[in-house]
Design a protein around this nucleic acid. Structure first.
Length: 562
RNA sequence: GCGCCCGUAGCUCAGCUGGAUAGAGCGCUUGCCUCCGGAGCAAGAGGUCAGAGGUUCGAAUCCUCUCGGGCGCACCA
């Protein structure tokens, strides 16, 4: 039982003594440090029930509280009836001890049950290189997976892609046109086709592999060969781009397999059996309005071909059938219209409401000097993900994509991203980590020392040090909240705050200012205690950076800018 | 027209299940340090939380409406 749980149950006991049994006790961390370390609004919530002014209830509660063993030094009534608690010195020290003992595992929680969780994201079609907007999704999905793993889920990472259909047809015809052009023949990239430079690359490589034999031949066999060649090549490129962006998948799921394995037909049969389908003007419809959709949807067109709705349902059903009782889809909000349809199709088949869960994110706008950027070499109409991270670096790109909540629009500011000072939040955090490492180097002390908890932590008695310890101790709950909300930006905000607190703690001990506040003071005991705190800082920053998929460098090497 | 998301400081954005004086970074102002017009440290100014009602002890947060922005509304994927 943690100290806060003890405090909570003691408050519940006190409330019961006042005649309010079964009261729910909320403990929160006040934003304002003057309000102590923990606070409860219990008296305010009981005011209606007990028909007494909140402040007098608060006084009575405090009078009846037995604080022994709760790690609390003072309990005082404040404001309209809050009760504020302050931790004892020993309680603060034990927070740091716990961080040092947990080390690289600090922030992970045992709460999870190791249940399987399917996360699907990126899912770009293999019709060209990933563009920078995919970066947001790539980073977001990956960070959500990491958060889930840190909180005890067993995560399966999946990438779904469409390898058949009209877009593939257009891709094949685009390659075909470029191939004919290479051979000196006039040919046009079809309307709605792909114009990027990469299509020419595909055509050239195809020609290298297959020679000139297909000149003027646009038979299905040739187009099919070009399609397969292009898909293989472009998929390989996407894989490279993602791998270099530190994003990996356990499985790539092909839409075509849904047909070849009969899953689409099985889904049609299953839906028909529900009695929720009907024929209208030669097409087969599903009553998705039964489940809250705005209108019914066509499953099979009058020409006998399924709409995309059907494989979508079949695909998500396959997740359930593969044993995933929990599934998250990360998608751009431009596709949010499909959500009620898929949900409706799956509910018709008996799956629970809200399966799968969706994380929808808004679009990204790339800016430089306040203007939208449209640099593009390889893809024609857009900046590729690789172009972006080759300019700003993978760490910066990932962090910038993660630092805003998914449902908000994201302005990716290249000027800020290219700044290598502390103004750039990524460098600010990494610098703070590197500073701690440089202290260890200077002290000739190891960065990790298992017996650290035995350091005389009571010597850490300045207000700044106490606050820093409490800030570090929050990390696990930050991870849990970020995981529960599927919101990696919460971790970004926390790391930036923590780095700021660590930086000012460090700078306060600058020799030109207050040398007695430096980590490496002469007093050996104090020095030992401060080194332990520096290790705690380092643990939290490193764990947080790794969680987000960023490096935690031992030293920063600032690139000289001309 | 209907649906979803968003509207918080000059800019980019936080604000957990409604809680105490609405926060951060950038930019700006003022000091300090310094080998410079670069970088660092400290402090400060800056808000009708888009607007109007409502719910309640208490609303940026919940409900309704209005205004503004984005996206989606096919027998296209």
């Amino acid at each position: 039982m943690s100290a806060t749980d003890r405090l909570r149950s003691k408050l519940a006991e006190a409330a019961e003594a006042l005649g309010a049994s079964g009261a729910e006790v909320q403990l929160e961390r006040p934003r304002n440090a003057e309000h102590g370390d923990w606070a409860t609004n219990l008296a305010l919530t009981l005011a209606g029930r007990l028909k007494k002014p909140p402040r007098s209830i608060a006084e009575e509660l405090v009078g009846r509280l037995d604080l022994t063993g709760a790690g609390v030094r003072t309990a005082e009534v404040a404001g309209p009836g809050f009760i504020n608690f302050r931790l004892t010195g020993a309680a603060v020290e034990s927070l740091l001890e716990r961080i040092l003992a947990a080390g690289a595992a600090f922030g992970r929680s045992e709460a999870g049950t190791d249940e399987p969780m399917m996360v699907e994201w990126v899912s770009a079609n293999p019709t060209g290189p990933l563009h920078f907007g995919h970066g947001r999704q790539a980073a977001l999905g990956d960070a959500i997976c990491a958060l889930l793993e840190w909180t005890g889920w067993s995560v399966h990472r999946e990438f779904y892609y469409n390898d058949s259909g009209k877009q593939m047809e257009l891709l094949a015809r685009s390659v075909w046109a470029r191939y004919q052009q290479l051979l000196g023949d006039a040919a046009e990239v079809p309307e709605g086709g792909y114009h990027g430079e990469y299509v020419l690359d595909v055509a050239e490589r195809f020609r290298e592999a297959e020679g000139d034999a297909y000149r003027g031949d646009d038979s299905d066999v040739v187009l099919d060969a070009m399609r397969r060649f292009a898909v293989a090549m472009l998929r390989a490129e996407q894989d490279r781009d993602l791998t270099d962006f530190r994003v990996r998948f356990d499985e790539h799921f092909l839409e075509s397999s849904l047909y070849s394995e009969g899953r689409v037909d099985a889904t049609i049969r299953g839906l028909k059996e529900t009695g929720l389908t009907y024929e209208h003007e030669g097409a087969l419809w599903l009553r998705t309005t039964e489940f809250g959709d705005q209108k019914d949807r066509v499953m099979v067109r009058s020409n006998g071909l399924p709409t995309y709705f059907l494989p979508d349902v079949a695909y998500h059903l396959s997740k359930w059938e593969r044993g995933f009782r929990h599934a998250i889809n990360v998608q751009g909000s431009d596709h949010h219209g499909t959500v009620p349809r898929v949900h409706a199709g799956l509910r018709a088949l008996g799956l629970p409401e809200g399966y799968p869960e969706y994380v929808l994110h808004q679009m990204v706008r790339l800016e430089r000097g306040g203007q939208e950027v449209k640099i593009s070499k390889r893809a024609g109409g857009y900046t590729t993900l690789r172009e972006l991270y080759e300019i700003v670096g993978v760490d910066v790109a990932r962090y910038f994509f993660l630092m805003r909540k998914p449902e908000a629009h994201l302005v990716f500011d290249l000027d800020e991203a290219l700044d290598q000072s502390d103004k750039n939040p990524v460098y600010k955090i990494q610098y703070a980590h590197a500073r701690m490492m440089s202290i260890f180097r200077k002290a000739g002390a190891p960065a990790e020392q298992p017996g650290d908890g035995a350091a005389p932590l009571a010597r850490l008695d300045t207000e700044a040090e106490r606050e820093l310890i409490k800030q570090l101790a929050r990390f696990p709950e930050v991870v849990q909240r970020a995981a529960a909300d599927r919101a990696p930006h919460v971790v970004c905000d926390y790391l930036e705050e923590t780095a700021g607190a660590a930086n000012s703690w460090y700078h306060a001990g600058n020799p030109s200012r207050s040398p007695e506040l430096a980590v490496l003071v002469d007093d050996p005991e104090l020095r030992e205690a401060r080194l332990a705190l520096a290790r705690g800082v380092r643990i939290v920053l490193r764990n947080g950076l790794r969680l987000l998929g960023l490096s935690a460098p031992d030293r920063m090497e600032r690139e000289e800018q001309e």
